[in-house]
Structure formats: structure tokens, C-alpha cells
């Protein structure tokens, strides 16, 4: 089981509260996690990654295990603790503004 925490705006859009739990086969990658989120919540298509290019939206970040994974390859395996569900993958709206 993969645990995912979505930002508040996307939880509201999906009408979903709390931590999201996904069942994914290995290898667990950002690409596969986001695809599973979009499949379960079609209204989130285009909000995490661009609907046309598939690229992460510039102000969205992927954090896990106290690391910023935003710039890693999206088909790279996520840390073992994420794949085992020991820690959540955090999808975050980046800090910006003054």
C-alpha cells in the first residue's frame, strides 16, 4: 500500500479527506502514483502534472523521506519506505509569494 498526502486544495477538489491509500505493483514510481491518483480522481487530471505534456506543474513538489524528489526522473523507483507504506509521499503546493 502506498500512502499519499495531497494538498488541501486538491483534497477539496476531489472531495476527499485524509491520507490517500493506493495499491500499486512494483516498481513504485512518481509516474505510476500520479497516474493512479488521476484514475481514481479524474477531476485531478491536469492539476499535478500538465495534461498535455505530462510534466510536473512548476509549483507542485514531491517530497518523501525528508527529500525533495521533484527533480528526479518520474520513472525512478521511490524510496523503499514509500513503496512499503512506512512513510507517505507528500505532494505539495510550493511555497511562493511574499
Amino acid at each position: 500500500m502506498i500512502r499519499v498526502v495531497l494538498p488541501a486544495h486538491l483534497r477539496a477538489l476531489a472531495r476527499f479527506e485524509g491520507e490517500l491509500h493506493l495499491e500499486l505493483d512494483e516498481p513504485v514510481t512518481i509516474e505510476r502514483v500520479v497516474a493512479a491518483i488521476e484514475e481514481r480522481f479524474p477531476m485531478l487530471r491536469g492539476t499535478i502534472r500538465d495534461g498535455a505534456t505530462g510534466r510536473r506543474r512548476p509549483y507542485v513538489r514531491y517530497f518523501a523521506c525528508e527529500r525533495d524528489l521533484s527533480h528526479d526522473a518520474t520513472d525512478a523507483e521511490l524510496p523503499t519506505r514509500i513503496a512499503r507504506g512506512e512513510e507517505p509521499l507528500l505532494i505539495v503546493g510550493a511555497m511562493s509569494g511574499g
Binding site: P7, H9, L10, L13, M43, G46, T47, I48, D50, G51, R57, Y59, V60, G93, A94, S96
Partner: peptide, 8 residues
């Protein structure tokens, strides 16, 4: 719309 999450 949102600078973070795009167009809905």
C-alpha cells in the same frame, strides 16, 4: 484556476 494547480 490556480498558479499551483492549473485550470479546472
Amino acid at each position: 484556476t490556480s498558479a499551483w494547480f492549473g485550470q479546472v
